[in-house]
Protein backbone atom coordinates (compact mmCIF):
# COMPACT_ATOMS: atom_id res chain seq x y z
CA UNK A 1 0.00 0.00 0.00
CA UNK A 2 2.73 2.44 0.90
CA UNK A 3 4.01 2.07 -2.66
CA UNK A 4 0.70 3.40 -3.98
CA UNK A 5 0.09 6.13 -1.51
CA UNK A 6 2.44 7.27 1.16
CA UNK A 7 0.63 10.40 2.32
CA UNK A 8 3.72 12.04 3.80
CA UNK A 9 5.64 11.63 0.57
CA UNK A 10 2.73 13.14 -1.40
CA UNK A 11 2.45 16.08 1.00
CA UNK A 12 6.18 16.68 0.77
CA UNK A 13 6.08 16.71 -3.02
CA UNK A 14 3.21 19.20 -3.00
CA UNK A 15 4.89 21.32 -0.37
CA UNK A 16 8.07 21.46 -2.41
CA UNK A 17 6.01 23.09 -5.19
CA UNK A 18 4.20 25.60 -2.98
CA UNK A 19 6.21 26.19 0.17
CA UNK A 20 4.54 29.52 1.01
CA UNK A 21 1.07 28.65 2.25
CA UNK A 22 -1.07 30.22 4.89
CA UNK A 23 -2.15 28.19 7.86
CA UNK A 24 -5.83 27.44 8.22
CA UNK A 25 -7.38 28.25 11.54
CA UNK A 26 -8.10 24.66 12.68
CA UNK A 27 -11.40 24.30 14.46
CA UNK A 28 -10.80 22.89 17.92
CA UNK A 29 -12.03 19.36 18.38
CA UNK A 30 -14.96 19.02 20.70
CA UNK A 31 -13.75 17.42 23.88
CA UNK A 32 -14.81 13.78 23.79
CA UNK A 33 -15.72 13.76 27.45
CA UNK A 34 -17.93 16.84 27.05
CA UNK A 35 -19.65 15.24 24.09
CA UNK A 36 -20.23 12.06 26.03
CA UNK A 37 -22.06 13.86 28.80
CA UNK A 38 -24.88 15.20 26.68
CA UNK A 39 -28.22 13.50 27.19
CA UNK A 40 -29.33 11.87 23.99
CA UNK A 41 -32.27 13.51 22.27
CA UNK A 42 -34.37 11.69 19.67
CA UNK A 43 -32.94 9.65 16.80
CA UNK A 44 -32.23 11.97 13.87
CA UNK A 45 -32.60 9.02 11.50
CA UNK A 46 -36.06 7.95 12.65
CA UNK A 47 -38.81 8.88 10.16
CA UNK A 48 -42.27 9.87 11.27
CA UNK A 49 -45.25 8.07 9.83
CA UNK A 50 -47.25 9.77 7.07
CA UNK A 51 -50.07 8.85 4.73
CA UNK A 52 -50.50 9.53 1.02
CA UNK A 53 -53.64 11.61 0.53
CA UNK A 54 -53.23 11.69 -3.20
CA UNK A 55 -50.96 10.02 -5.78
CA UNK A 56 -51.49 10.78 -9.46
CA UNK A 57 -49.27 10.53 -12.52
CA UNK A 58 -48.10 13.85 -14.01
CA UNK A 59 -46.13 12.45 -16.95
CA UNK A 60 -44.91 9.03 -17.98
CA UNK A 61 -42.06 9.29 -15.46
CA UNK A 62 -43.30 11.66 -12.78
CA UNK A 63 -45.92 11.24 -10.08
CA UNK A 64 -47.51 13.92 -7.93
CA UNK A 65 -48.09 13.22 -4.23
CA UNK A 66 -49.98 14.92 -1.47
CA UNK A 67 -48.97 13.79 2.01
CA UNK A 68 -50.29 14.20 5.52
CA UNK A 69 -48.24 13.55 8.63
CA UNK A 70 -49.99 11.02 10.89
CA UNK A 71 -49.18 13.22 13.89
CA UNK A 72 -51.53 15.86 12.46
CA UNK A 73 -48.73 18.44 12.75
CA UNK A 74 -47.59 20.73 9.95
CA UNK A 75 -44.36 19.77 8.17
CA UNK A 76 -43.11 23.28 8.97
CA UNK A 77 -40.92 23.74 5.89
CA UNK A 78 -39.73 26.78 3.96
CA UNK A 79 -39.76 27.06 0.15
CA UNK A 80 -36.69 25.26 -1.26
CA UNK A 81 -36.26 22.72 1.54
CA UNK A 82 -36.44 18.96 1.13
CA UNK A 83 -37.55 15.90 3.08
CA UNK A 84 -36.19 12.37 3.29
CA UNK A 85 -38.90 9.97 2.15
CA UNK A 86 -38.86 6.34 3.32
CA UNK A 87 -40.64 3.52 1.59
CA UNK A 88 -40.46 0.51 3.94
CA UNK A 89 -38.10 -2.06 2.41
CA UNK A 90 -36.74 0.32 -0.23
CA UNK A 91 -34.80 2.82 1.84
CA UNK A 92 -34.82 6.59 1.77
CA UNK A 93 -34.44 9.36 -0.81
CA UNK A 94 -34.23 13.16 -0.60
CA UNK A 95 -37.23 14.79 -2.29
CA UNK A 96 -38.05 18.50 -2.53
CA UNK A 97 -41.21 19.87 -1.06
CA UNK A 98 -43.20 21.35 -3.92
CA UNK A 99 -46.04 23.02 -2.06
CA UNK A 100 -45.88 26.38 -0.35
CA UNK A 101 -45.93 26.52 3.46
CA UNK A 102 -48.98 28.74 3.05
CA UNK A 103 -50.84 25.56 2.14
CA UNK A 104 -51.78 24.02 5.48
CA UNK A 105 -52.55 20.46 6.56
CA UNK A 106 -50.70 18.57 3.84
CA UNK A 107 -47.62 18.99 1.68
CA UNK A 108 -46.88 18.03 -1.91
CA UNK A 109 -44.03 16.59 -3.91
CA UNK A 110 -43.28 15.29 -7.40
CA UNK A 111 -41.10 12.25 -7.91
CA UNK A 112 -39.39 11.07 -11.07
CA UNK A 113 -39.10 7.31 -11.35
CA UNK A 114 -35.36 6.66 -11.78
CA UNK A 115 -34.56 3.64 -9.61
CA UNK A 116 -35.28 1.47 -6.65
CA UNK A 117 -37.11 3.67 -4.19
CA UNK A 118 -38.71 6.03 -6.67
CA UNK A 119 -40.08 3.02 -8.55
CA UNK A 120 -41.59 1.56 -5.35
CA UNK A 121 -43.05 4.96 -4.51
CA UNK A 122 -44.62 5.07 -7.96
CA UNK A 123 -46.64 1.96 -7.14
CA UNK A 124 -48.20 3.40 -3.98
CA UNK A 125 -51.75 4.74 -3.93
CA UNK A 126 -53.74 7.08 -1.71
CA UNK A 127 -54.01 5.63 1.79
CA UNK A 128 -50.58 3.95 1.68
CA UNK A 129 -48.08 4.91 4.35
CA UNK A 130 -44.54 6.19 4.05
CA UNK A 131 -41.91 7.63 6.40
CA UNK A 132 -40.90 11.29 6.42
CA UNK A 133 -37.86 13.03 7.95
CA UNK A 134 -37.20 16.71 7.77
CA UNK A 135 -37.64 19.36 6.52
CA UNK A 136 -33.92 19.80 5.82
CA UNK A 137 -31.63 22.29 4.15
CA UNK A 138 -31.62 25.93 3.20
CA UNK A 139 -34.44 27.90 1.62
CA UNK A 140 -35.09 30.40 -1.14
CA UNK A 141 -34.76 33.83 0.50
CA UNK A 142 -38.48 34.68 0.37
CA UNK A 143 -38.42 36.24 3.84
CA UNK A 144 -35.72 38.83 3.26
CA UNK A 145 -33.63 39.18 0.10
CA UNK A 146 -36.49 38.61 -2.34
CA UNK A 147 -38.88 41.03 -0.65
CA UNK A 148 -39.69 44.07 -2.77
CA UNK A 149 -37.62 42.71 -5.63
CA UNK A 150 -38.44 41.42 -9.09
CA UNK A 151 -38.01 37.67 -9.24
CA UNK A 152 -36.59 35.70 -12.14
CA UNK A 153 -37.03 31.93 -11.85
CA UNK A 154 -35.17 29.68 -14.28
CA UNK A 155 -36.23 26.05 -14.08
CA UNK A 156 -35.19 23.07 -16.17
CA UNK A 157 -37.16 19.81 -16.05
CA UNK A 158 -38.15 18.79 -12.54
CA UNK A 159 -36.21 21.80 -11.28
CA UNK A 160 -39.65 23.42 -11.32
CA UNK A 161 -40.72 21.14 -8.45
CA UNK A 162 -38.96 22.90 -5.55
CA UNK A 163 -39.30 26.34 -7.18
CA UNK A 164 -43.08 25.85 -7.31
CA UNK A 165 -43.02 26.14 -3.53
CA UNK A 166 -41.54 29.64 -3.83
CA UNK A 167 -43.89 30.57 -6.70
CA UNK A 168 -46.97 29.74 -4.66
CA UNK A 169 -45.54 31.44 -1.61
CA UNK A 170 -44.97 34.64 -3.59
CA UNK A 171 -48.47 34.44 -5.09
CA UNK A 172 -49.95 34.04 -1.60
CA UNK A 173 -48.04 37.12 -0.42
CA UNK A 174 -48.26 39.00 -3.70
CA UNK A 175 -47.89 42.56 -2.35
CA UNK A 176 -44.46 41.76 -0.84
CA UNK A 177 -42.73 41.14 -4.17
CA UNK A 178 -42.22 42.81 -7.55
CA UNK A 179 -42.65 41.28 -10.98
CA UNK A 180 -42.23 37.49 -11.15
CA UNK A 181 -40.88 35.91 -14.35
CA UNK A 182 -40.97 32.13 -14.61
CA UNK A 183 -38.85 30.48 -17.31
CA UNK A 184 -39.39 26.79 -17.79
CA UNK A 185 -37.66 24.36 -20.13
CA UNK A 186 -38.64 20.74 -20.74
CA UNK A 187 -37.20 18.10 -23.05
CA UNK A 188 -40.43 17.48 -24.97
CA UNK A 189 -44.01 18.76 -24.66
CA UNK A 190 -44.92 15.40 -23.06
CA UNK A 191 -42.36 16.01 -20.30
CA UNK A 192 -43.90 19.31 -19.18
CA UNK A 193 -45.12 19.35 -15.60
CA UNK A 194 -47.70 21.65 -13.99
CA UNK A 195 -48.83 22.94 -17.42
CA UNK A 196 -52.28 23.92 -16.04
CA UNK A 197 -50.76 25.71 -13.12
CA UNK A 198 -48.41 27.61 -15.41
CA UNK A 199 -51.50 28.84 -17.25
CA UNK A 200 -53.03 29.97 -13.96
CA UNK A 201 -49.81 31.64 -12.81
CA UNK A 202 -49.51 33.62 -16.05
CA UNK A 203 -52.94 35.12 -15.43
CA UNK A 204 -51.96 36.51 -12.06
CA UNK A 205 -50.96 40.08 -11.38
CA UNK A 206 -47.37 40.95 -12.48
CA UNK A 207 -46.43 37.41 -13.50
CA UNK A 208 -45.01 36.25 -16.82
CA UNK A 209 -44.39 32.64 -17.77
CA UNK A 210 -42.22 31.64 -20.71
CA UNK A 211 -41.76 28.05 -21.77
CA UNK A 212 -39.52 26.21 -24.18
CA UNK A 213 -38.93 22.60 -25.21
CA UNK A 214 -35.81 20.96 -26.68
CA UNK A 215 -37.69 18.62 -29.02
CA UNK A 216 -41.11 19.86 -30.17
CA UNK A 217 -43.87 17.59 -31.44
CA UNK A 218 -46.34 18.49 -34.16
CA UNK A 219 -48.80 20.25 -31.92
CA UNK A 220 -46.24 22.43 -30.12
CA UNK A 221 -46.57 26.13 -30.87
CA UNK A 222 -44.29 27.59 -28.25
CA UNK A 223 -40.58 28.29 -28.10
CA UNK A 224 -38.09 25.65 -29.16
CA UNK A 225 -34.54 25.38 -27.84
CA UNK A 226 -32.55 25.61 -24.66
CA UNK A 227 -33.77 27.59 -21.69
CA UNK A 228 -30.92 30.07 -22.19
CA UNK A 229 -32.65 31.17 -25.40
CA UNK A 230 -35.52 32.55 -23.29
CA UNK A 231 -33.33 34.86 -21.26
CA UNK A 232 -32.83 37.54 -23.96
CA UNK A 233 -36.63 37.75 -24.20
CA UNK A 234 -37.11 39.01 -20.66
CA UNK A 235 -36.61 42.55 -19.49
CA UNK A 236 -34.53 42.54 -16.34
CA UNK A 237 -33.45 45.40 -14.11
CA UNK A 238 -30.37 43.68 -12.67
CA UNK A 239 -30.11 45.86 -9.54
CA UNK A 240 -33.68 45.10 -8.62
CA UNK A 241 -33.85 41.42 -9.49
CA UNK A 242 -33.19 38.18 -7.64
CA UNK A 243 -32.67 35.17 -9.88
CA UNK A 244 -33.19 31.53 -8.89
CA UNK A 245 -31.80 28.66 -10.97
CA UNK A 246 -32.82 25.03 -10.55
CA UNK A 247 -32.45 22.23 -13.06
CA UNK A 248 -30.25 19.39 -14.28
CA UNK A 249 -26.51 19.75 -13.50
CA UNK A 250 -25.57 20.62 -17.10
CA UNK A 251 -27.84 23.67 -17.13
CA UNK A 252 -26.11 25.82 -14.54
CA UNK A 253 -22.97 26.90 -16.34
CA UNK A 254 -24.84 28.13 -19.41
CA UNK A 255 -27.52 29.95 -17.47
CA UNK A 256 -24.93 31.61 -15.23
CA UNK A 257 -23.04 32.89 -18.26
CA UNK A 258 -26.23 34.43 -19.68
CA UNK A 259 -27.17 36.02 -16.36
CA UNK A 260 -23.73 37.58 -16.14
CA UNK A 261 -24.14 39.03 -19.63
CA UNK A 262 -27.46 40.51 -18.51
CA UNK A 263 -25.64 42.34 -15.73
CA UNK A 264 -26.80 40.20 -12.81
CA UNK A 265 -24.33 40.14 -9.92
CA UNK A 266 -23.32 36.82 -8.35
CA UNK A 267 -24.85 37.70 -5.01
CA UNK A 268 -28.30 38.20 -6.48
CA UNK A 269 -28.33 34.73 -8.01
CA UNK A 270 -29.52 31.73 -5.99
CA UNK A 271 -28.93 28.15 -7.10
CA UNK A 272 -30.58 25.00 -5.87
CA UNK A 273 -28.01 22.21 -6.29
CA UNK A 274 -28.66 18.51 -6.52
CA UNK A 275 -26.22 16.09 -4.95
CA UNK A 276 -26.27 12.48 -3.93
CA UNK A 277 -27.72 12.52 -0.42
CA UNK A 278 -28.36 9.85 2.10
CA UNK A 279 -28.74 11.16 5.65
CA UNK A 280 -29.79 14.77 5.06
CA UNK A 281 -28.25 15.75 8.41
CA UNK A 282 -24.56 16.29 7.67
CA UNK A 283 -23.25 12.88 8.74
CA UNK A 284 -23.00 10.41 5.84
CA UNK A 285 -20.68 12.50 3.65
CA UNK A 286 -22.40 11.79 0.34
CA UNK A 287 -23.39 15.37 -0.47
CA UNK A 288 -20.02 16.99 0.30
CA UNK A 289 -18.43 19.42 -2.12
CA UNK A 290 -15.04 19.63 -0.45
CA UNK A 291 -15.79 21.32 2.88
CA UNK A 292 -19.44 22.13 2.15
CA UNK A 293 -22.29 19.81 3.12
CA UNK A 294 -25.00 20.49 0.55
CA UNK A 295 -27.68 18.94 2.79
CA UNK A 296 -26.86 21.44 5.55
CA UNK A 297 -25.69 24.65 3.90
CA UNK A 298 -27.71 23.97 0.71
CA UNK A 299 -29.43 22.86 -1.41
CA UNK A 300 -30.10 26.58 -2.00
CA UNK A 301 -26.91 28.64 -2.26
CA UNK A 302 -26.21 32.26 -3.05
CA UNK A 303 -23.98 31.91 -6.09
CA UNK A 304 -21.30 34.25 -4.74
CA UNK A 305 -20.74 31.96 -1.73
CA UNK A 306 -19.94 28.83 -3.77
CA UNK A 307 -18.39 30.32 -6.91
CA UNK A 308 -14.92 29.27 -5.73
CA UNK A 309 -15.93 25.87 -4.34
CA UNK A 310 -14.48 23.08 -6.46
CA UNK A 311 -17.00 20.66 -7.97
CA UNK A 312 -19.92 22.96 -7.13
CA UNK A 313 -21.02 23.93 -10.62
Amino acid sequence: MTGIANPVEIYNQLYAKSPDIETFEQAALTDASAATERTPPEDIYAPQAATLVQARPLTELETFYEIKLDSGLELGHEPGQFVEISVPGFGEAPISVSSSPTQRGTFQMVVRNVGNLTNALGKLVAGDRIGVRGPFGSEFPVHDVMKGKDILLICGGIGLVPVRSAINYVLDNREDYGHMTILYGAKTPADRIFADEQQDWSKRDRVSVLETVDDPDEGWQGHVGRITALLPLVLVVPENTIAVVCGPPVMYRFVLEELKKMGMSDDSIYLSLERRMKCGVGKCGHCQMNGVYVCQEGPVFQYSTIREVMEAI
Binding site: L14, P19, T23, F24
Partner: peptide, 17 residues
Protein backbone atom coordinates in the same frame (compact mmCIF):
# COMPACT_ATOMS: atom_id res chain seq x y z
CA UNK B 1 8.43 9.50 7.22
CA UNK B 2 9.28 13.09 7.85
CA UNK B 3 6.71 15.72 6.95
CA UNK B 4 8.40 18.84 5.64
CA UNK B 5 5.60 21.24 6.53
CA UNK B 6 3.53 21.64 9.68
CA UNK B 7 0.36 19.52 9.88
CA UNK B 8 -1.67 22.73 10.37
CA UNK B 9 -0.62 23.77 6.90
CA UNK B 10 -2.03 20.66 5.21
CA UNK B 11 -5.62 21.85 4.60
CA UNK B 12 -4.34 24.95 2.79
CA UNK B 13 -1.73 22.92 0.93
CA UNK B 14 -4.35 20.46 -0.28
CA UNK B 15 -6.77 23.22 -1.29
CA UNK B 16 -4.01 24.85 -3.28
CA UNK B 17 -2.96 21.60 -4.95
Amino acid sequence: HDLKCRPEELPALLAKS
